[in-house]
């Protein structure tokens, strides 16, 4: 599973700051806008692609 790699051996996940949350909102919004224009892949697939 890909998230197991993300959390390493410790079983912990790094906290996000407020500005990281804002960046994520922007990124997701842009991805969605792009999708609306292109309508190629579902957002779910796209986010998966970005996470790898």
């Amino acid at each position: 599973m890909q998230h197991l790699r993300a959390i390493g051996q410790t079983g912990e996940v790094q906290r996000a700051t407020a500005s990281e949350v804002r960046e994520r909102i922007e990124r997701v919004w842009e991805a969605l806008e792009e999708e609306r224009q292109q309508d190629v892949k579902s957002l779910g697939e796209r986010l998966k692609v970005r996470q790898v």
Partner: peptide, 15 residues
């Protein structure tokens, strides 16, 4: 919902 942080919540809600 495994290994999410506060930013990942955004993705999950939207999707």
């Amino acid at each position: 919902c495994f290994a999410l942080n506060e930013a990942d919540i955004v993705d999950r809600v939207v999707v």
